[in-house]
Each structure stands twice: as structure tokens, then as C-alpha cells.
């Protein structure tokens, strides 16, 4: 049994602001059935730009429902700028604390809020609003559809230092475990980034321009260091076939060659890593098979 406190249980048993808003100004939906929890947040603003009405619908456990309920109480009456500053810690503190393994519920609340605010602003700017669907290339944890950005935010806001903590706060790494190394890299990177922050501020670096040979070398190195170990863990492999401008041709080997999610891996792992370490404009595609391989 989870050790939920009375405030959590009260918000679970008597959730505030459940339901649907007609013509909301902003809507945010995060999570999925697959992940085991999902939250849809809707708000309306008054003339002064304050959140006048807010409603939610949640699929999930007691702490997910309680976190959603707490979030709505916290943001009511706030301007969007004020609401934006609400963190998952604020939600957890409002509830008098959540079990460590349930912290991801508070993070889900905070994520839904940001998506809803973004949804409102896009509408204001007259942009198309499909922000509810995450970009596949940003996803670090395939099992729970957690983006790199979400992980970074959770690490920074909660000063997380271990992969296990990241799992408790975002769920990332809690499924097949295939992304735990990537999370560790993120933790290491952010740690290094903090250390180097002061130094970097003193001497601004100019963006480097790579020659094709340098680029190929860097791609090879990145495959070797960042990508191949991940694929080999699942019995797969990858080879660099060619580079044409910004297009990288690779060949997926081993189990990857028959894998149903190979395309996804290509974008979510290979392309994401190459963009991160080589050049942000790179596009990764499967190289056409050579004839003897097709046989």
C-alpha cells in the first residue's frame, strides 16, 4: 500500500475542478493509456488575463488524480506568467508531499500546464495547434514517451543526480531500461554544463564549421560512442554508408534490420544523437540495400 497522506487522499476522494470547459482558451493533454496515466487540462482567462476557470480530466492512480486536482487549485486566479513559474515541487508541496516513486504524477501536472499555456499562445499567434503530439525525434524514453526536454527540466528543477531519481520523477527508464544510459549521459552533460557555465560566459564560442571529412569522422565517432552500444544491447547494429550534404545514409544490421520500430529508432536514437553531437541539421535515412543483401 502506498503511504498517501490525508491531503492526497482528500484530493483523490474529492477532486476539485473535475470536468470539461466549453470553449477553453488553452488545452493541454499529456501522458497516454500506454503509460498508465494521462491528464487533460483546460483553462479560461478573464479580461485581465488571469486564469478564471480551470478543469481537468485524469486517467491514473490516486496520486495522479490528486496532483491534477492540486494543480487546478494552485493556478486558479494566476496570470499565465505566474502559472508558468509553478513547478512540480509546488504541486507536491501543496499536497504535503508524495511518495518518491509517485513524483512523476506531479511532473505530469506541471507538463500539462505548460502544454496548455503553449496551446493558448499558439492560438493567439494564429498557428496550428497540434502541440499535444510530441515530436518522435525528441523522445528519449520510448516506453513512456518522455522527451529529452522533459527529462532535462525535471533534472534542473529538482536537482536530480541519479537515473533512479529521474525515473521516479518522469518515468523515463522505468520500462525496458534501454534509455538509462542516455539519461546518465544527460545527467553527466548537465553536470558538466553547470561546471563550465562560468567559463563559457567569459569567452563566447563561435559556431564551428566542419569540413566533410571532419563531419564523417565526427559521425563515425558518435556512432561508435553513443549509438552502437545502445543498439548492440538489443542485438542490433548500425553502419555508416554515405554522407551527402546534410543527409546521412546508414544501414541497420542484426535485429534492427527486422525491427518494427527501426524507423523510430533511426529518428529517436540515431538522428537525435547525430544532431546533438555533430550538426543540428542532419537528416538520417536508411541506405538502399545493396543487391547481395536483398537476396
Amino acid at each position: 500500500m502506498w503511504d498517501y497522506n490525508d491531503v492526497v487522499m482528500d484530493h483523490f476522494r474529492n477532486p476539485r475542478n473535475v470536468g470539461v470547459l466549453e470553449d477553453p482558451d488553452g488545452v493541454g493533454l499529456v501522458g497516454s493509456m500506454a503509460c498508465g496515466d494521462a491528464l487533460k487540462l483546460m483553462f479560461k482567462l478573464d479580461a485581465a488575463g488571469r486564469i478564471q476557470a480551470v478543469k481537468f480530466q485524469t486517467f491514473g492512480c490516486a496520486s495522479a488524480i490528486a496532483s491534477s486536482s492540486a494543480l487546478t487549485e494552485i493556478i486558479k486566479g494566476k496570470t499565465l506568467e505566474e502559472a508558468e513559474r509553478v513547478t512540480n515541487r509546488d504541486i507536491a508541496e501543496y499536497l504535503g508531499g508524495l511518495p518518491e516513486q509517485k513524483m512523476h504524477c506531479s511532473v505530469m501536472g506541471r507538463d500539462a500546464l505548460l502544454v496548455a499555456i503553449e496551446n493558448y499562445r499558439k492560438k493567439q499567434r494564429g498557428e496550428e495547434v497540434d502541440s499535444e503530439i510530441k515530436e518522435a525525434s525528441d523522445i528519449t524514453c520510448v516506453c513512456f514517451g518522455v522527451t529529452r526536454q522533459e527529462i532535462v527540466r525535471a533534472i534542473q528543477e529538482n536537482n536530480l543526480t541519479t537515473v533512479e531519481q529521474v525515473t521516479n520523477y518522469t518515468k523515463a527508464g522505468g520500462g525496458c531500461g534501454g534509455c538509462r544510459d542516455s539519461i546518465q549521459f544527460l545527467l553527466d552533460d548537465l553536470h558538466k554544463a553547470r561546471e563550465k557555465a562560468a567559463e563559457a560566459r567569459q569567452k563566447p564560442t563561435k559556431p564551428r564549421r566542419l569540413t566533410t571529412i571532419q563531419k564523417v569522422q565526427l559521425i563515425q565517432e558518435t556512432i561508435e560512442r553513443e549509438i552502437r552500444p545502445q543498439l548492440q544491447k538489443d542485438g542490433g547494429d548500425i553502419e555508416l554508408v554515405d554522407l551527402d550534404g546534410r543527409t546521412v545514409f546508414v544501414s541497420m544490421r542484426g535485429t534492427c534490420s527486422q525491427c518494427k520500430v527501426a524507423d523510430f529508432t533511426l529518428k529517436a536514437v540515431v538522428q537525435a544523437k547525430l544532431r546533438e553531437f555533430v550538426e543540428p541539421e542532419l537528416i538520417v535515412v536508411q541506405a538502399p540495400l545493396a543487391e547481395e543483401e536483398q537476396a
Partner: peptide
Amino acid sequence: ISPFVEELSPACQERSYS
């Protein structure tokens, strides 16, 4: 309390089955 399942993103639903 549950959000309507039809409104969950199709990508997520597809993933959940595959």
C-alpha cells in the same frame, strides 16, 4: 474523471498496442 480516450493522441494509442 478520465479524459475521453478518443482524444488521446493516435501515436500514443498505436504505441500502446504495438
